[in-house]
Design a protein around this nucleic acid. Structure first.
Lengths: 266, 266
DNA sequence: GAGTGGTCTAGACCACTGT
DNA sequence: CAGTGGTCTAGACCACTCC
């Protein structure tokens, strides 16, 4: 025999799935539901919490509980990297307004809002290891967030690391006011003679911290985040950039197509 | 001014991060913590819930609250598909005991436990669309779960769909007792003359349903799941298999390396 | 049985959203 | 203002773990 709140949650889940309340619609008030299931309001709230954790329901303080509506997905595929490379050496006019983010989101440059902040840090254990530089090496840390003008919440939170002495070869790369740089990081690296040869993505998922949930405009209960660690190497295999991207799990989809080599006909 | 439970949660988070309690260690009892922060036990439990949602803390009924320890990751990379294809036509002796799962997990065949169940269904809207077959076409649905013998919880929950009339060309493919089939699905398809030409992965993240959390042995609060939709096409571009894989987010990492084509030297 | 977290109640009061 | 969800209390009782 399940608990009271589980029984209420199961019934509410069934009713939502059956379409009794469609996406975006409001559920009856908690007091009403509590009376209907013959339980205390606190107990009914436990049932609602279960559905929130499952991502089925969203609460808005002062308004009510709502059936969560699916969000439009942003596809992200590793093809973006080759695409970016092909454009890295084009003229600025050709690069402008056609970044990888626009490609992912299908939004135009004018619809996107960028924020960039640069600062200097010293290499931690982890950074010195991936870059193969001594502990304490001066690094450039770049923090980006990209938002759609029509949604108030950022689409991604990016932290990028570069070896300071390397990027300093072009002083323009040390100034955050030059962001968004047309053509992106690969174009920036090209100005200091670096050609990116391969990029490795590592994708994990975890719940958002309180801050991230705030920044991404997601419900900490019920929506997870993707954490993408991207490591770029030059053509010699030397790590040239490492970045960490936090993406809202309710709006992001990674797509990857693998072409398999044909069998020899026999 | 934050609420009482938020202040308690913030302080506990800080103390955990500072190492006051290491990974896997037990926190003081809720009654003790409540007294320490001068709040009611119910309120203190709200603070603990925040940390559970963040994935920092795990509660075990009857034992206590514990700092969650990171789990060993299982890497999954699309190279597995090419690797599987290369082995699909080898002799059974060569295929046996070296499946893609073993490659992902690093575990040996003897350490893994398989469960397979086959049944027949009719194509839903979604299925008929991806396969390009009429609505209501008879499909073979295969449900798999793979577990490590040393952990009781499955590593993945897989649902795979095939067109029944196609696989029926080899009756052995209709019998679940032939699972685990050495060499996997690509080897099975080969027995009916199908060569897989490309595989597309779509990766999303979402909270687990109550059932999935149960099956995967994860905490529904604090651990998300990956949902991988895999579409295999033959060399003509015809969809031959669709499968959905649910993976525990606290143990899985997707890795993908993109090699970029070199710039022409000028 | 002692100690832990989990469920449930009843009710006071606060904070936010609409009109 | 009325109506909604959010916080907090005090206490009873249940369920699980370990000795």
């Amino acid at each position: 025999m399940a608990t009271k709140y589980e029984r209420a949650a199961n019934d509410l889940r069934r009713r939502i799935r059956s379409g009794e309340w469609g996406p975006g619609e409001q559920l009856p008030a908690e007091t009403t539901l509590a009376a209907h299931y013959g339980v205390n309001v606190t107990t009914l709230r436990n049932a609602i919490r279960v559905l929130k954790v499952e991502g089925l329901v969203e609460s808005i303080h002062g308004k009510g509980n709502f059936v969560r509506a699916p969000r439009t997905l942003i596809e992200r595929s590793p093809e973006r990297y080759q695409w970016e490379k092909d454009r890295a050496r084009l003229s600025e006019a050709e690069r402008i307004g056609t970044g990888a983010t626009e490609k992912d989101t299908g939004l135009r440059f004018e619809d996107l809002e960028f924020y960039a902040k640069y600062d200097d840090i010293v290499a931690t254990n982890e950074l010195s290891e991936v870059f193969g530089v001594p502990l304490g090496t001066k690094m450039l840390r770049r923090t980006f967030r990209t938002s759609s003008r029509h949604e108030d919440a950022p689409i991604s939170l990016v932290t990028s690391y570069l070896v300071h002495a390397v990027v300093a070869r072009n002083p323009a790369l040390l100034d955050e006011r030059n962001e968004p740089w047309p053509g992106g990081t690969q174009s920036q690296l090209w100005t200091i003679g670096i050609e990116v040869g391969s990029i490795t993505d590592r994708i994990r998922t975890r719940p958002p911290s309180a801050d991230e949930a705030e920044d991404l405009g997601i419900d900490p209960e019920g929506v997870a985040t993707f954490v993408l660690q991207k490591i770029s190497k030059d053509t010699e295999g030397q790590v040239v950039e490492v970045s960490t991207v936090v993406l809202p799990g309710d709006r992001t989809e990674f797509v990857n197509t693998t072409k398999l080599t044909p069998w020899e006909t026999k």
